[in-house]
Write a protein that binds this DNA or RNA. Structure first.
Length: 638
RNA sequence: GCCCACAUAGCUCAGUCGGUAGAGCGCAUCCUUGGUAAGGAUGAGGUCACCAGUUCAAAUCUGGUUGUGGGCUCCA
């Protein structure tokens, strides 16, 4: 029996016999640590706590407090769920895969006969609890590839067989708990008793291996935490998030709706929602003009031949709407770039006048698959804050930096956290290596210059160039792409865009496609959830409401209302024959920032008494002072 | 587009075994004139998403369509 030297995170070294486990080492340090440990990291590999060690190396124990613990436990909990399902429904159900994901885990099952329904959840949960209570040991074994294939084939687990057949390895690892065995890399918790707080959450369909040509599996989503308290907190968080769902708030605040008669994914903007849009659009125009953009407007439909020339017909036709008049086919625009290029081409361009930055609040229509529509966040008709910057290659860097700064400024104004991704050259792409390098480096250096952390999506760029994507989170932590910056060498080529250089020769410009908020619709959806419907004063469709205490003040209330309205304050008037408390409540539920209360006191003193929606109030002031107050706040985007 | 579920009054939802519908909020009218989150009374509102089928009889059962929700694939 040889001795191994194991180094622990604090630098101490322990000599143990070969074949000792991490658990043994933990136990030698302290009983509590051994009890708390669910796995280990050995030479940077996550392993089971009971895995015998055969070489010297560094070891750190993963306890319930370690950041990795939750994922390992959830993955194990997926096995527990699969075990419960197999025990309940036996051979009717085949297992496939079941990983840990953000906030929980899932397991995909295949069955011809068993259709999972939510009513199964308590049954499955009860079985899981029973198996957890039995505190079954979870054991790992390594067997040969062929042996494993034979094993799973004999159990009728065709998907497991397919997985192993696609593996390169000569051996595979299996995990057993009770009668349940699963192909798995691990690591797993040592005993099923670790699982104390889990809950099945939803059912969904999912394609085998994410491929829409393959079988549809039944996915059971669940969540699990290390203790019941964390689970409860998580479920409460979900409830909170539901309250700020933009679809619910959109109806409650009377901002927008959808109509079956109009068609799915087509937004009907009500007066307050349209006001909110208008405010954002005005903001966009102002901010773009400040940064050297020129506003342009293109047509809604362009001849189909033009879409053929751009490549959209070939690559994007399924998402486009077409219309035919006088035997001429037109495509309704799904993007704004074509018109912008035609505007560029309308006259000769000199290197001296580049870059040009064409900005359009461009309304586009895309026939998104019916199943993907989602409130304002995924629609079929939407307006992009779209611009195309046509520049010389040597200007890419400074232009991208300018756009990045723009994104940062806007995110700052709205108080958004966001994540960024750089997508690089895909396998299927066009353009020279030099062009790609230049463009990718420009994007990268802008990202680094911004100080933002970013992920790299290797090979996920557009076929015509690399891109930066900016994602904002919704209330349920789902990420939505908003801003994007794309470098494009192709369309200038296809449309033969040129400029005359200092050498008098024709040169090819580069085009940057970019949006800052992406689509106004999506942005508003995320905004509603971000602010939970309580918009800052400058964005609020209704900034103030005038409330009289009794009919006696109705006339003065009307005067105040008209004065505010003509001063440009977005104001409403409520002189209904209702109690003040009732009107306050309604205004508060409507999330109107300021309620201007008018009683006999205000009438005699010619003032208003503003009450903020959080319940606090300002001293009575003149109408003019209130107007000034609103203007000042708005100019500071508050 | 695919899988599963759902669709009853403006909103949130009841409606048992198949016998053509209810509540609360909202809305209208009247009473009440009340100072910072819900005063009271009365009343009006529904081809039970749509189209077929089964049945003496369908909100209820079956099929299809449209839309919605949770996912998958795809995307701003």
């Amino acid at each position: 029996m040889s001795l191994l030297e194991i180094e622990l995170p604090d630098g101490t070294k322990k000599e143990v016999e070969s074949g000792s486990t991490s658990y043994d080492i933990a136990a030698s340090i302290g009983e509590g640590l051994a009890r708390q440990s669910i796995a280990a990291r050995f030479n940077d590999e996550l392993i089971d706590i009971n895995r015998p060690l055969e070489t010297s190396g560094t070891l750190s124990l993963i306890t319930q407090k370690s950041p990795e613990a939750l994922d390992i436990m959830r993955h194990s909990c997926a096995h527990l769920m699969a075990q419960a399902v197999k025990e309940l429904y036996g051979d009717d159900v085949q297992v496939t895969i079941g990983p840990a994901i953000k906030d929980g885990f899932y397991y995909d099952f295949y069955s011809e006969t068993k259709k999972f329904v939510p009513e199964d959840f308590p049954v499955i949960e009860a079985k899981m609890a029973e198996l957890a209570k039995a505190d079954l040991p979870v054991t790992r074994e390594v067997i040969g590839r062929e042996e494993a294939i034979a094993l799973f084939r004999s159990m009728g687990e065709a998907y497991k067989v397919e997985l192993i057949e696609d593996l390169d390895a000569e051996t595979v690892s299996l995990y057993r708990q009770g009668d349940f065995v699963d192909l798995c890399r691990g690591p797993h918790v040592p005993r099923t008793g670790v699982h104390k707080a889990f809950k099945l959450t939803s059912l969904a369909g999912a394609y085998w291996r994410g491929d829409e040509t393959k079988a549809m599996l039944q996915r059971v989503y669940a969540t699990a935490f290390l203790n019941k308290k964390d689970l409860k907190a998580h479920l409460e968080r979900l409830e909170e998030a539901k309250k700020r769902d933009h679809r619910k708030l959109g109806r409650e605040l009377d901002l927008f709706s959808f109509s079956e008669e109009a068609g799915g994914g087509l937004v009907l903007w009500h007066p307050k929602g349209a006001m909110l849009r208008t405010i954002i659009e005005d903001f966009e125009r102002k901010e773009h003009l400040k940064r050297g953009y020129e506003i342009v407007v293109g047509p809604q439909i362009l001849k189909t031949d033009l879409w053929k020339m751009s490549g959209h017909y070939e690559n994007y036709r399924e998402n486009m709407y077409f219309t035919e008049v006088d035997e001429l086919s037109y495509g309704i625009k799904p993007m704004n770039c074509l018109a912008h290029m035609l505007i560029y081409k309308s006259k000769p361009r000199s290197y001296r006048n580049l870059p040009v930055r064409f900005f359009e609040l461009g309304t586009v229509h895309r026939h998104e698959k019916s199943g993907v529509l989602h409130g304002l966040l995924r629609v079929r008709g939407f307006t992009q804050d779209d611009a195309h910057i046509i520049c010389r290659p040597d200007q890419i860097d400074s232009e991208v930096k300018g756009v990045m700064q723009f994104v940062q400024d806007v995110a700052g104004i709205f108080g958004f956290e966001y994540t960024m991704e750089l997508s690089t050259r895909p396998e299927k792409s066009i353009g020279s290596d030099a062009d790609w390098d230049q463009a990718t480096n420009a994007l990268r250096s802008s990202l680094e210059g911004s100080g933002q952390e970013y992920d790299i999506n290797e090979g996920d760029g557009a076929f015509y160039g690399p891109k930066i994507d900016v994602k904002l989170k919704d209330a349920l932590d789902r990420e939505w792409q908003c801003a994007t910056i794309q470098c494009d060498f192709t369309l200038p080529e296809r449309f033969d865009l040129t400029y005359t250089g200092s050498d008098g020769e024709k040169h090819r410009p580069v085009m940057l496609h970019r949006v800052i908020v992406g689509s106004i619709e999506r942005f508003i959806g995320v905004l509603i959830e971000h602010y939970a419907g309580s918009f800052p004063l400058w964005l609020s469709p209704v900034q103030a409401i005038v409330l009289n205490v009794t009919d006696n003040q109705a006339e003065y209330a009307q005067e105040v209302f008209e004065q505010l309205r003509s001063a440009g304050v977005r104001v409403e008037l409520d002189v209904r024959n209702e109690k003040l408390g009732f009107k306050i409540r309604e205004a508060q539920v409507g999330k109107i920032p300021y309620m201007l209360v008018i009683g006999d006191r205000e009438v005699s003193e010619k003032t208003v008494s503003p009450r903020f929606r959080d319940g606090s109030s300002l001293d009575a002031m003149s109408v003019d002072s209130f107007v000034d107050f609103v203007k000042t706040q708005c100019s500071e985007y508050k």
